[in-house]
Amino acid sequence: MKLRRYVKPLLGMLSVTFSLMLGWSCAYWLTSIFYEAIQYHPHELTNQLINSILGFFLFGCSIFFVTRIKLVKERQEKFLHPMIHAMKMMAEGNFNIDLSYYRNQFYGRDDHPYYKIIESINHMADKLGKMEEMRQEFISNVSHEIQSPLTSISGFAHALKKEDLSLQERKRYLEIIEMESIRLSKLSKNLLRLTSLESDDLTLKRKSYRLDQQLRRIILANEPQWAEKEIEMDIALESLTITADEELMDQVWINLIHNSIKFTPKAGTITVTADQTANGQLMVKINDTGIGMNKDSLMHIFERFYKADKSRTRDAGGSGLGLSIVKKIIDLHKGQIQVKSELEKGTEIVITLEQF
């Protein structure tokens, strides 16, 4: 195969050289006949120039006619038509394209233009196919998340039409409708937030502020939730200044602390620490004694709509978007987030951020 790779270009060069020699030979023969006919012989330099120009002209004509030969055209169309058809399929949304048969016709000649075009088309189809799968999965997840609360709202609204319901039953049904409506509203807000975070036009509104004060404010704002579950909050926050988008970072700490409270059982403990590392980075750790996660769940926790424990998350009203939003905001701030967890032993989340 390697020998063939070098033989074909060599034969091509020889054929071009032969065609040039043939063209110049014909030019010399034609001019000689012409000079004999008119009984005139120009200067040697002039004769060579005329022969060269005429030889190149004849060579160009021969190449023009060769490219119009049916065999050559068929060979070109053999590769062009499948590529054109593949691009039409992609334009129609079909990315299941296989041009491996035509690619193999070049026997590993990856420098050939057709080979490069086929490789580019295959790569494009693969990337677009993956994007389409992600889009379909996203639509499916959104539809599923919306359908569940809508079914509850519709069912309990229909039940309220019954005249024999007690006041207590009516109150309970209305509370469920209200809870599901709030859940829909949160889902809508989270989807809009994710969309804005992924926008190319997003500009971080950075400013300097006290990170420890921000954490303490959000922990206190959630006191009704952790106090109701009798959770002990162990807080150790050093005085730290950070330059970041305060509003977005608010969302990070709110989501993470809500998760810790949600999955920590009654009388559990949540520890929040913030300090500065030896290399000048800011490190925030959130530890809880909650239900934890297994290794498989840890691999997917930042994926949209992923829920490690679907039954418990649904009872708590989660949509599976909170950690996706957290990860996106941390990435925008060039930070890092790491999660360690074990089932029934709790979870540790470590966020590392640059100070400036």
Rank of each mutant, 00 (worst) to 15 (best):
Gly23Leu: 00
Trp24His: 13
Trp24Lys: 05
Ser25Gln: 02
Cys26Thr: 10
Ala27Val: 03
Ala27Trp: 04
Tyr28Lys: 07
Tyr28Leu: 14
Tyr28Thr: 05
Trp29Lys: 06
Phe34Gln: 08
Tyr35Met: 10
Tyr35Leu: 06
Glu36Cys: 11
Ala37Tyr: 12
Ala37Ser: 15
Gln39Glu: 11
Gln39Arg: 12
Tyr40Leu: 09
Tyr40Asp: 11
His41Arg: 08
Pro42Gln: 11
Pro42Tyr: 04
His43Met: 05
Leu45Gly: 12
Thr46Arg: 13
Asn47His: 14
Asn47Ile: 15
Asn47Phe: 15
Gln48Asn: 15
Leu49Pro: 09
Ile50Lys: 04
Asn51Pro: 03
Ser52Glu: 05
Ser52Arg: 15
Ile53Cys: 13
Ile53Met: 14
Ile53Asp: 06
Gly55Ala: 07
Gly55Glu: 04
Phe56Pro: 12
Phe56Thr: 14
Phe56Asp: 07
Phe56Ala: 15
Phe56Leu: 15
Leu58Gly: 01
Leu58Asn: 00
Leu58Pro: 00
Phe59Glu: 06
Gly60Val: 14
Gly60Cys: 11
Cys61Arg: 10
Cys61Asn: 10
Cys61Pro: 01
Ser62Asn: 06
Ser62Val: 12
Phe64His: 05
Phe65Thr: 09
Phe65Lys: 08
Phe65Ile: 07
Phe65Ala: 09
Val66Glu: 13
Arg68Glu: 06
Arg68Ser: 07
Ile69Arg: 13
Ile69Ser: 09
Lys70Arg: 15
Leu71Cys: 06
Leu71Ser: 13
Leu71Phe: 15
Lys73Leu: 03
Glu74Asp: 02
Glu74Gly: 05
Glu74Ile: 07
Arg75Leu: 10
Glu77Asp: 13
Glu77Phe: 15
Glu77Ser: 11
Phe79Ala: 05
Leu80Arg: 03
His81Arg: 14
His81Gly: 10
Pro82Gly: 09
Met83Pro: 04
Met83Phe: 14
Met83Val: 13
Ile84Met: 00
His85Glu: 08
Met89Phe: 09
Met89Ser: 14
Met90His: 07
Ala91Gln: 02
Asn94Gln: 11
Asn94Phe: 01
Asn94Ala: 01
Asn94Val: 05
Asn94Trp: 11
Phe95His: 03
Phe95Met: 01
Leu99Phe: 06
Ser100Asp: 11
Tyr101Asn: 11
Tyr102Ile: 10
Arg103Trp: 04
Arg103Met: 05
Phe106Ile: 01
Tyr107Gln: 12
Gly108Cys: 03
Gly108Ser: 08
Asp110Thr: 08
Asp110His: 15
Asp110Gly: 15
Asp110Ile: 10
Asp111Gln: 05
His112Met: 09
Pro113Gln: 03
Tyr114Ala: 03
Tyr114Ile: 02
Tyr114Leu: 10
Ile117Met: 00
Ile118Pro: 02
Ile118Val: 02
Ile118Lys: 00
Glu119Leu: 06
Glu119Met: 00
Ser120Thr: 03
Ile121Asp: 05
Ile121Gln: 00
Asn122Thr: 04
His123Glu: 12
Met124Leu: 14
